[in-house]
């Protein structure tokens, strides 16, 4: 499998330049954690990488294939937005079959949290159940690279460890870029941590650097 290479991303909203010449790379086996304050451009960056949002300039490729839009990223990059994406009118088992191959589909269907829900439609699930299902679907999907926007948001603490375990298992076969405000879980699971600050990316080596870059308060 080839690496995900993201380069020269510039994005402005009107006169406000949100992303300035961003460079990120991700290889299979890597879990890249992306931190940043509210409004720093994390979701914007993930959407640009995925191809669902245009940028002023961008260069995204997986191996030799250049990704311009969502048509190009099929089975290469999948993205889970922070507000969810499951249509209400389909059964869970249909969605699992669409997203995953047979083996991964069985892993999700046999999960004790998902098994009781398999024959239900998405509109019968609670918000937390939907979110958990979405995370498992995207993690076990056929794509080589998975971008997840706030996977720990709205999830009970007892399930966060399970989510981390699934991500770490699947990271043997694919690359992940994950962003969340629950920085402790991101630091726990990520093999490399980046912070988006003033439109630029900085690599974080330790917790003190999060304070230095203004992500955590001084007294923490």
């Amino acid at each position: 499998m080839n690496g995900l290479h993201v380069d020269s991303i510039i994005k402005s909203y009107g006169n406000n330049q949100v992303l300035t010449d961003i460079f990120i790379s991700c290889n299979p086996g890597e879990i890249v954690g992306l931190l940043g304050r509210n409004g720093s451009g994390k979701s914007t960056l993930l959407k640009i990488i995925f191809g669902s949002l245009n940028a002023d300039t961008k260069f995204v490729k997986v191996g030799d294939k250049i990704i311009n839009g969502v048509n190009d990223s099929r089975n290469l990059i999948n993205y889970l937005p922070q507000d969810g994406f499951l249509p209400n009118h389909i059964k869970i088992k249909t969605i699992i079959n669409l997203f995953c191959d047979k083996y991964s589909g069985e892993i999700i269907s046999e999960n004790p949290l998902i098994r009781p829900l398999v024959n239900k439609k998405c509109n019968k699930l609670s918000g937390g159940e939907k979110r958990l299902l979405e995370i498992l679907l995207i993690t076990y999907s056929k794509a080589n690279y998975v971008l997840i926007d706030e996977p720990f948001n709205g999830i009970a603490p007892v399930y966060k460890d399970e989510i981390k375990r699934h991500i770490q298992e699947q990271s043997k076969f694919k690359g992940f870029i994950i962003t969340d405000h629950d920085y402790r879980n991101i630091l726990d699971v990520a093999s490399r941590v980046l912070i988006l600050h003033d439109g630029a990316i900085q690599e974080i080596k330790n917790r003190e650097e999060l304070i230095y870059w203004g992500y955590l308060p001084q007294a923490t």
Binding site: S52, V70, R74, N78, F85, L86, L98, S141
Partner: peptide
């Protein structure tokens, strides 16, 4: 239901298509 588009984007179907 604009977020539903992401479901189809992940299956390789763009808004244009």
């Amino acid at each position: 239901y604009s977020n539903d588009y992401y479901f189809y984007y992940n299956l390789g179907l763009s808004r244009k298509s």
